[in-house]
Design a protein around this nucleic acid. Structure first.
Length: 436
RNA sequence: GCGAUCGUAGCUCAGUUGGUUAGAGCGCCGGUUUGUGGUACCGGAGGUCGCGGGUUCGAACCCCGUCGAUCGCCCCA
């Protein structure tokens, strides 16, 4: 690499090859499932006014206080590259009058930006798939949203991942619980880890899932959310769990699952790889694959009318790490290479390739390359994983012009399939010779 | 923001206690090969050893700094 070539920005990725295939597979699967559940597609701006995020997510959260890519535009306005989807979608809901469509089910995917130290499964520009139900207070909305998340993960073929579920109660429940936790941990503050002493000020709920053994011994006897739950909040959570059972979505209760952002109420959840599973080892130290919850207070923080809503987002890179390695093929469609035997047959081969492409209904793909011919090109095609090769020979007899060789599946059936493809060619290409 | 490990060809990596002209495989380019299915054969190009400084007769190798990568902490998807 020349020292004169600029390098990529830290924490960004140039996704290529098998990784890019896995990425596309995740997005395509999500699109299919989202249509199945009739979530409407939305496209959102990649940047917003900074206050959209600072007001919605909460000034004291790590995301807002130290992880945002914020900058002034030429008019002196503070803008921010979106660190998540929910705040922007909430803003759009309010500014575009989407109330008229409530309850509104929307889905999107795209890049997000967080100024963090990159590591496995975590980047400064990363990508999420996202689903939201806005304007529905019913626990059935939570259930459907979670069933959809569960289906996405299953259709991706991901094993060993479990839904961890908790309730944070309503606003009053959450503040009462928070106050009790501050009291409880405040007494033993000196014995807590340095991180948790700080968390006591900023986000006491987070002490509950600290990994530090100094904190862990106090966590077991910490005040439980269930004691503070109002009757309504309790009933809501039960309705959600009953609905999940009815829908056949497996879940476990995770009492210490709190989510980092201020806007969560009631349902909070994460899909997490099971301890010791293959999925867990593929993810490195990242554990959450998909996370979300109910955010009934968010619209008000943006100056809108109280509007109940639930949503989730999942990291595409993290999902892609779990859907298989280079050996996994995401598309079984057969690939036919069209190869000129000699330079003189180049134009003829190109014509045949063009014919075959225009005749394809997506049941096969045509491979071609722009230089070389004969054996050398055939070797390249095989390396690229083509299933069959059609040689275009320079012979006087048109009937001998096309020669088919099956590469990947030596079965007669596969060979017949390829002959069937070639049968669609117009004259004078009808005849051909080949093996099997 | 903190810590650990690592930067040699396009890629993956060798490179002895510091010692002549820094190597291999793959890929790439050219030639031969008319093709049985990720193993044909011959030849070739390609590297200021991340960058800067220092030690030394001599540095890819030792020291300092810097940038980057990887992994972990924090936090999150």
């Amino acid at each position: 690499m020349s020292k004169n070539t600029p390098q990529a920005i830290r924490g960004t990725q140039d996704i290529f090859g098998a990784d890019a295939e896995a990425f596309a597979f995740v997005v395509e699967t999500f699109e299919r499932v989202r249509k199945l559940y009739r979530f409407r597609r939305v496209e959102m701006p990649v940047f917003e006014k900074t206050e959209v995020f600072s007001r919605a997510i909460g000034e004291t959260t790590d995301v807002v206080s130290k992880e945002m890519y914020s900058f002034e535009d030429r008019g002196g306005e503070s803008l921010t590259l979106r660190p998540e989807f929910t705040a922007g979608i909430a803003r759009a809901f309010l500014t575009n009058g989407w109330q008229q469509h409530a309850p509104l089910k929307v889905a999107t995917h795209g890049p997000l930006f967080r100024y963090e130290r990159p590591q496995k499964g975590r980047y400064r520009q990363f990508h999420q798939i996202d689903a939201e139900i806005i304007g529905a207070a019913e626990p059935q909305a939570d259930v459907e949203l979670l069933a959809m998340a569960d289906q996405v993960i299953r259709e991706l073929g991901i094993q060993g991942v479990t839904l961890h579920l908790n309730t944070l109660g309503d606003g009053e429940t959450r503040s009462a619980w928070r106050a009790a936790l501050i009291d409880y941990f405040g007494v033993v503050k000196g014995e807590l880890s340095e991180d948790s002493q700080e968390r006591l000020e900023k986000n006491p709920l987070r002490i509950l899932d600290s990994k530090d053994p100094r904190d862990r011994k106090f966590v077991a006897d910490a005040p439980k959310i269930d004691t503070f739950l109002s009757d309504e909040a309790q009933a809501f959570f039960e309705a959600v769990t009953n609905g999940l059972d009815a829908a056949g979505v497996k879940w476990v209760r995770a009492e210490s699952l709190v989510r980092g952002l201020d806007y969560y109420r009631h349902t909070a959840f994460e899909f997490i790889p099971d301890e010791g599973s293959e999925a867990a080892s593929k993810l490195g130290s990242q554990s959450t694959i998909l996370g979300g919850g109910r955010y009934d207070g968010l619209m008000e923080s943006l100056g809108g009318a109280p509007t109940p809503a639930v949503g989730w987002a999942a990291g595409i890179e993290r999902l892609a790490m779990l859907v298989g390695g280079p050996e996994v093929s995401f598309d079984p469609t057969p690939v036919l290479a069209v190869i000129p035997d000699s330079p003189s047959m180049r134009a003829e081969a190109d014509r045949i390739a063009a014919h075959l492409r225009s005749l394809s209904s997506g049941d096969y793909y045509i491979w071609s390359a722009f230089k070389q011919h004969g054996r050398k090109l055939a070797d390249k095609a095989k390396n690229d994983g083509v299933d069959a090769i059609l040689f275009v020979r320079d012979v006087p007899d048109v009937d001998d012009r096309l020669h088919l060789t099956n590469v990947s599946a030596p079965s007669e059936e596969a060979m017949r399939e390829m002959f069937y493809v070639l049968a669609r060619l117009p004259a004078p290409y009808r005849a051909l010779s080949g093996e099997n």
